[in-house]
Amino acid sequence: MSSTSRRSPVQGMRRGVLVAGVVGTALLTIAGAVAKGADGALSALAGSLLAFVVMLLGVIAISLVVAGDPGASMAGAGLVFMGQIIVLIAAIAVLTQMGWLQGPVAAAATVVEVVLLQVGQLVGYVRARHEVYPQGGHA
């Protein structure tokens, strides 16, 4: 690797989020169906898909952040996190207006999916090959 190229862990993070999101959404939808029937399945699907989409958009946004100025990475990551929280809360507010939605099922699915996605993102980050300190060892 040349000293001018930078490797990013974002591809690994995106892969981890995709795998965890697909598997988690399927399992949580099945769990919702077993626990509460068709409305439970729809509620679990809505909650898990909401978390999946918001987290995936966050990883995409992080890829834009790390492509820019390295000095602004932490501030950019903080803005991405705040944006995810705002979008998640706004979407939950809209979803609560749906008559078919079972709130506790959707909330539980959202929380579990967020945890699964965070684990997937972390595993993807740890397994990605990237330089931790790219300027180290260069004069």
Rank of each mutant, 00 (worst) to 15 (best):
L18E: 00
L18Q: 04
V19Q: 00
V19C: 03
A20P: 12
G21I: 13
V22R: 08
V22H: 05
V23S: 09
G24C: 06
G24L: 02
G24S: 02
G24R: 09
T25Y: 06
T25R: 08
A26V: 15
A26G: 08
L27S: 12
L28I: 07
T29D: 02
I30E: 02
I30M: 08
A31M: 01
A31E: 00
A31P: 05
A33F: 05
A33Q: 03
A33K: 01
V34I: 07
V34M: 00
A35W: 14
A35K: 11
K36L: 06
G37V: 01
G37F: 08
G37D: 11
G37E: 12
A38S: 14
A38D: 13
A38H: 12
A38C: 08
D39N: 15
D39W: 10
G40Y: 02
A41R: 11
L42Y: 07
L42N: 09
S43A: 08
S43E: 10
A44W: 06
A44S: 12
A44I: 06
A44F: 07
L45D: 10
L45V: 09
L45P: 12
G47A: 07
G47R: 03
L49K: 13
A51M: 13
A51P: 05
F52Q: 06
V53C: 14
V53P: 15
V53L: 15
V54T: 04
V54A: 03
M55K: 08
M55S: 14
M55P: 05
L57E: 04
L57C: 06
G58A: 04
G58D: 11
G58H: 10
G58S: 12
V59S: 01
V59M: 04
V59A: 06
I60M: 09
A61Q: 15
I62P: 06
I62S: 11
I62V: 10
I62A: 14
I62R: 08
S63V: 01
L64N: 09
L64Y: 03
L64P: 02
V66F: 14
V66W: 14
A67D: 11
A67Q: 10
G68Y: 07
G68F: 07
D69S: 14
D69C: 04
